[in-house]
Simulated assay, not measured.
Amino acid sequence: MSSLAIPDAWTGALPTANPPAGVNVYHLPTGTYETRAALAVQGGSFRDKRPFAASAVLVRHPKGDLLIDAGFGADLSQHMAMLPWYMRSPHQAGRTAAEQLDAVGYDRGRLIGVVPTHTHWDHTSGLDSLHGTPVWLNPAERRHAADEPDSKVFRQVSRHHEIHSYDFGSGPYLGFPASHDVHGDGSIVIVLAAGHTAGSVIVFVTRPSGERYAFVGDLTWQLDGIRHRVERPWLMRKFADKDPASVREGLLRMISLNDLIQIVPAHDLAAYDGIPHLTSGVSS
């Protein structure tokens, strides 16, 4: 296993954030699919079979809620059939994000959008059940989604969704050169972290308690990438990443922040520890 060089820890002040009361974060697990650790991180074992999470994250905010990613959808079998044969892993489907929202009486009118960290199938399949909710894409990811084979499922499930385009006009954020402050109070900040796809993003969330989260999508598939400073295996970098060098740069930035922020790779179940699931008490 070849670890990356240890980056300098972040020593500057954390960005100012003034999240209002009511900002909170909930994990909506929609299922898992099986991946061998040897294909996920350098140094992983072929004997180690990892249950890769497919999840959505609900961020509540008085000015409007967002979903980060959409997880598995109701038509999951159809979506998996659209994938190349070598990507059809054994999987277990749970309740869709839409079913979990409806089960607690959540008013979906509060949702101002779904922000995919990128437009791969396992982050967007659940859009098929989130009718009427806008999908937020930056221009680079919108172009990627329109042309690339790896966004075929996204093109199908997003056909009847409004696409809300956003840019990165809020300046640098924690070492990333460009950001978008969703509500203008620092509680939800989207940064461009291109490399896995052309417009991949990280979503930073700050709660009123001061707890901070970084939902990093597929910057790394597992927390091993952060804790052991390892990239995907060479073959998977060539296969899965649009620009492996940019992914490495983003990974090093996040490693430097590991002691300050709860970093959540989308596919690591353990990374969601401490983030509650939805219950009926949070529907209003």
Score class of each variant (00 low, 15 high):
L101T: 01
F176Y: 09
G113Q: 10
G199Q: 13
G184R: 10
P149Y: 03
L130N: 03
H161T: 01
V157E: 11
I163D: 14
R142D: 15
G199A: 10
H131Q: 12
D128R: 01
G195K: 06
P134S: 08
G105R: 01
A145M: 07
G186Q: 07
F168H: 09
G186T: 00
H131V: 10
L137C: 13
Q156K: 12
A178F: 01
F154E: 10
V114R: 04
Y213P: 13
Y173I: 02
R212C: 04
H131N: 12
G186E: 05
R143N: 12
W221K: 05
A193Q: 14
S165H: 12
V205P: 04
H123F: 12
P139F: 02
Y173K: 05
Q222N: 09
W121I: 01
G210Q: 08
V203T: 15
L219A: 05
V203Q: 06
Q100A: 00
G217M: 05
R155F: 09
S170K: 01
S151F: 02
H144I: 03
K152L: 15
L223G: 03
P208T: 03
T220K: 05
D107A: 13
P177Q: 04
P134G: 05
N138F: 01
R155P: 14
R155L: 12
S209H: 02
A146M: 05
D102M: 00
R142S: 14
D102Q: 05
A198V: 04
A145E: 13
H131T: 14
Q156E: 15
F204K: 06
I163R: 09
V135L: 10
P177T: 02
G217L: 02
R155K: 11
I190K: 03
R142G: 12
S151P: 11
P177L: 02
D185I: 00
P134A: 11
G184W: 08
V114Q: 07
A214N: 09
S129G: 14
P116Q: 10
G105C: 02
G175A: 08
N138G: 13
S129W: 00
H123R: 10
V216K: 07
H118Y: 14
H160V: 05
F168T: 06
T119D: 08
H144A: 11
V104M: 09
R110L: 08
T119S: 14
